[in-house]
């Protein structure tokens, strides 16, 4: 029973991509500067795509084995449909919470992939739009950071309350910083104090609602979720 080593080490592909990124991002910024102020949206999407490349390349380069692939697929699918379990509470969307827990169990790489993949899938089901790359990046980053924090024992199943609070902050901050910025760039003509305040205050309530749902979900589900995964790891001798 061969199993791949723990928490998918960042491999060569990752570093190559970092170098590519180091060249591409400044180039993109330069082009967007030349094109004038209105190209912020396009420039930022291009930057974001470059920023996601290393993660995908790393995933691709790690040649994931069948179990890793299947388990990641199952957990990501659960994140996407988690809403259905709360059918009585229509606005309760705990997806980010599940992604945080996946990241805690399987590390930053898996966290990023499940976050980004769950957003692609949601958009395949409900329709793609100009928001797709932003959402992918945002949720991918939530997973990635949660994975890093879990690696530094800041998020841990032993500290349920701390973990839930950090989840709340992480989701609120990243959704505001990334998702609301996309609306700002896409819809508003001139970026100034007035428009910035309007867009971010309009978004913060919704972001906090989602963050609250995710954080509650982490609070109630963290222990059983980790117990399930640990049992699986022991039963099938997995070393992720």
């Amino acid at each position: 029973m061969e199993s791949k080593p723990a928490k998918k080490k960042l491999n060569k592909a990752f570093w190559i991509s970092i170098i590519v990124m180091a060249v591409c991002i400044p180039a993109t910024v330069a082009i967007s500067y030349l094109l004038g102020d209105r190209k912020l949206y396009i420039a930022s999407v291009i930057i974001m795509i470059f920023a996601m490349v290393p993660f995908f390349a790393n995933f691709e380069g790690s040649k994931p084995d069948a179990r890793y692939l299947a388990i990641l697929a199952v957990l990501t699918a659960i994140a996407v449909i988690s809403r259905i379990a709360f059918i009585w509470l229509p606005s309760f969307k705990p997806m980010a919470g599940i992604i945080v827990m996946i990241a805690m169990a399987f590390g930053p790489q898996a966290g990023f992939m499940s976050g980004a993949l769950s957003m692609i899938i949601s958009n395949i089901i409900f329709g793609q739009g100009p928001w797709t790359p932003w959402q992918m990046f945002c949720y991918g980053l939530i997973g990635f950071i949660a994975g890093l924090l879990a690696g530094g024992r800041i998020l841990s199943e032993k500290h349920v309350i701390r973990t839930s609070i950090i989840t709340f902050i992480l989701v609120t901050v990243l959704s505001s910083a990334i998702l609301d910025t996309s609306s700002l760039f896409l819809m508003i003509s001139s970026i100034n104090a007035g428009s910035i305040i309007t867009v971010y205050t309009a978004g913060i309530f919704l972001n906090m609602m989602n963050a609250l749902a995710s954080s509650l979900c982490v609070f109630l589900l963290l222990k059983p979720f980790m117990a399930i995964l640990n049992r699986l790891k022991i039963k099938y001798g997995m070393k992720y």
């Binding site: 692939l69 299947a70 699918a77 009585w88 509470l89 979720f225």
Partner: peptide, 20 residues
């Protein structure tokens, strides 16, 4: 809702192992 999710996770992961 979270109890439902927890059952779902156990059940679906068993399926995931078969899938693998």
């Amino acid at each position: 809702g979270t109890l439902v999710l927890s059952t779902l996770t156990s059940w679906a992961l068993e399926g995931g192992i078969i899938m693998a």
